Computed example of a mutant assay.
Amino acid sequence: MLSIKTLKPFYVKQETRNIRIMLAYQYFTIHIDGDVYQFVPVEGREIVVNRKTKRIENEKDILVFQKGKHMIQISIAELLDIPEFLTHVHSIAHRYLTKQLPVTLEKSGDVIYELERQNAMRLIDQAIDHNDKEAFLELCDYMNENFTVSHETQK
């Protein structure tokens, strides 16, 4: 019989798409047939939770547990069959899933670029609505000089 004794993150890394629950010695222990095994970071060292779907993405990763000299390998997929494992993971990840990541300087530049592009597009539409050929041509030149047309912006 396999059960979770302790599951605490060593630390949690927040990313735009995922939350990485980093594991370390003494923070993750399991019971197997009455014996206590401690996690050792030999192979897998983290649990990756997708922010959008809230699902564990690295189910195929293997975690290694040790008791004395005896080591046992368990995949995250096997651990998912234990309801308390999911409960522990979701209680850890929940705090981070609800937090919005601060906008980084790099991302704010992307936001400003996109806002300027959208504003120029609106001004072009306005020039068309008012039959202002001069403003239309000037704005089209501005768009060509300052914004690259990508497949994403054409959608």
Rank of each mutant, 00 (worst) to 15 (best):
M1D: 13
S3K: 15
I4Y: 09
I4L: 15
K5M: 08
L7W: 00
K8W: 04
F10P: 00
V12G: 05
K13A: 09
K13L: 10
Q14M: 13
Q14A: 07
E15W: 07
E15Y: 10
R17C: 00
N18P: 02
M22T: 02
Y25M: 10
Q26S: 15
Y27F: 13
Y27L: 13
F28I: 00
F28V: 01
I32V: 09
D33I: 01
D35E: 08
D35P: 00
V36Q: 06
Q38C: 07
V40Y: 15
V42F: 15
V42M: 10
I47K: 02
V48S: 09
V49T: 05
N50A: 06
R51D: 04
R51N: 05
K52H: 12
T53F: 07
T53N: 11
K54A: 10
R55D: 11
R55Y: 08
R55P: 01
I56A: 11
I56M: 14
E57T: 14
N58Q: 06
N58R: 14
K60S: 13
D61P: 02
D61G: 02
I62V: 15
V64S: 05
F65I: 06
F65R: 03
F65H: 03
Q66H: 06
G68K: 03
K69H: 08
Q73P: 04
Q73Y: 04
I74S: 03
I74W: 07
I76R: 07
I76N: 08
E78A: 05
L79K: 07
I82A: 00
I82C: 01
F85P: 02
L86H: 06
L86G: 13
H90T: 04
H90F: 09
A93Q: 01
A93C: 02
A93L: 01
R95N: 14
T98L: 12
T98H: 07
K99A: 09
Q100E: 14
V103K: 12
L105E: 11
L105S: 10
K107I: 06
G109V: 01
V111C: 02
I112H: 04
I112S: 08
L115N: 06
N119R: 10
M121Y: 12
R122V: 08
L123Y: 09
Q126Y: 13
A127Y: 04
D129W: 03
H130F: 11
H130K: 10
H130E: 12
N131K: 13
D132E: 07
K133P: 00
F136G: 00
L137A: 09
E138K: 15
L139V: 04
L139R: 06
C140D: 08
C140P: 00
C140L: 13
D141W: 13
Y142E: 11
N146Y: 11
F147P: 02
T148A: 14
E152S: 08
E152C: 01
Q154C: 05
Q154S: 06
K155M: 08
